Amino acid sequence: MSRENRINEDIRAREVRVIDADGNQLGVLPLRDALRIADERQLDLVEVAPQAKPPVCRIMDYGRYRYEQSKREKEAKKKQRIITVKEVKLRPNIEDHDFEVKARNAIRFLKDGDKVKATIMFRGRQIVHPDLGKQLLVRLAEKVADLANVERPPKLEGKNMIMILAPKQQQD
């Protein structure tokens, strides 16, 4: 159903196909008769398919329908998780302790449900040894293997080598 449905007197068509509150078809009726039936039942006539020939209208409590729709939208919004990409930058000649610190940061990001972009930054002539960078990224991937999957394997892009790690899905 569209965002803004026409209700009662806002409906423009002369004839409408009417569906009652229980989902039964009442057939094609003149708009006046459909409005009268809705009024007798103390409900609203809501246009649910304006593009149909003739337009389809349903007899329902529009206020309750809008309330339930907003509740469904809020519930759907709650279940959405915005995944951000956090970056961990390394150099090919990083010391072991520094590597451990960077790995702990990556683990923290993955536990929070974020993706991790691991970047090896080459400077000057270091670029002639891309294998060192690849070894470092593979070592990082092994360190976080229980928490993450390698979404994109190590790949050289300009003066940087990039690998993307995605958190493993938790079983609820």
Results as ranks from 00 to 15, higher is better:
residue 2 S to C: 02
residue 2 S to A: 05
residue 2 S to E: 13
residue 2 S to I: 13
residue 3 R to Q: 00
residue 3 R to I: 02
residue 5 N to Q: 09
residue 7 I to H: 02
residue 10 D to Q: 11
residue 11 I to W: 01
residue 12 R to C: 07
residue 15 E to Y: 14
residue 16 V to L: 05
residue 16 V to R: 04
residue 18 V to S: 03
residue 19 I to S: 02
residue 20 D to W: 01
residue 22 D to Y: 06
residue 23 G to Q: 07
residue 27 G to C: 06
residue 28 V to L: 01
residue 28 V to R: 02
residue 31 L to M: 07
residue 31 L to F: 04
residue 31 L to Q: 01
residue 32 R to N: 08
residue 33 D to A: 12
residue 33 D to S: 13
residue 33 D to I: 04
residue 34 A to P: 05
residue 35 L to K: 02
residue 37 I to Q: 00
residue 39 D to C: 04
residue 41 R to T: 14
residue 41 R to L: 15
residue 43 L to M: 13
residue 44 D to H: 08
residue 45 L to W: 03
residue 49 A to R: 11
residue 51 Q to P: 00
residue 51 Q to W: 03
residue 53 K to T: 14
residue 54 P to Y: 00
residue 56 V to I: 15
residue 56 V to P: 00
residue 57 C to Y: 11
residue 58 R to W: 02
residue 59 I to V: 14
residue 59 I to D: 10
residue 62 Y to G: 01
residue 62 Y to V: 03
residue 64 R to D: 15
residue 64 R to P: 08
residue 67 Y to L: 09
residue 69 Q to P: 00
residue 71 K to G: 00
residue 71 K to H: 09
residue 72 R to L: 12
residue 72 R to S: 11
residue 73 E to T: 03
residue 73 E to M: 13
residue 76 A to D: 06
residue 79 K to N: 13
residue 80 Q to T: 12
residue 81 R to L: 14
residue 82 I to M: 08
residue 83 I to S: 13
residue 85 V to A: 10
residue 86 K to D: 11
residue 87 E to Y: 07
residue 87 E to A: 13
residue 87 E to M: 11
residue 88 V to Y: 06
residue 88 V to T: 06
residue 92 P to Q: 03
residue 93 N to H: 12
residue 96 D to G: 10
residue 98 D to Q: 14
residue 101 V to T: 11
residue 102 K to T: 06
residue 104 R to S: 14
residue 105 N to D: 05
residue 105 N to Y: 08
residue 106 A to E: 10
residue 106 A to G: 06
residue 108 R to V: 05
residue 109 F to I: 04
residue 110 L to I: 09
residue 113 G to F: 02
residue 114 D to H: 15
residue 116 V to H: 05
residue 117 K to T: 11
residue 119 T to E: 05
residue 122 F to P: 00
residue 123 R to E: 15
residue 124 G to L: 11
residue 126 Q to Y: 09
residue 127 I to V: 15
residue 127 I to K: 07
residue 128 V to P: 07
residue 129 H to C: 02
residue 132 L to R: 13
residue 132 L to H: 05
residue 133 G to T: 09
residue 133 G to E: 10
residue 133 G to M: 08
residue 136 L to H: 01
residue 138 V to W: 08
residue 138 V to M: 12
residue 139 R to L: 09
residue 141 A to N: 12
residue 143 K to Q: 08
residue 143 K to G: 03
residue 143 K to I: 03
residue 144 V to S: 03
residue 144 V to N: 06
residue 146 D to C: 04
residue 146 D to I: 11
residue 150 V to E: 03
residue 150 V to K: 00
residue 151 E to K: 05
residue 151 E to H: 04
residue 152 R to K: 07
residue 154 P to Q: 06
residue 154 P to C: 04
residue 154 P to G: 04
residue 157 E to T: 00
residue 158 G to I: 10
residue 159 K to L: 12
residue 160 N to W: 01
residue 160 N to K: 14
residue 163 M to L: 10
residue 165 L to E: 09
residue 165 L to F: 10
residue 165 L to I: 05
residue 165 L to C: 01
residue 166 A to Y: 01
residue 166 A to R: 15
residue 169 Q to H: 07
residue 171 Q to T: 03
residue 171 Q to M: 14
residue 171 Q to D: 02
residue 172 D to V: 01
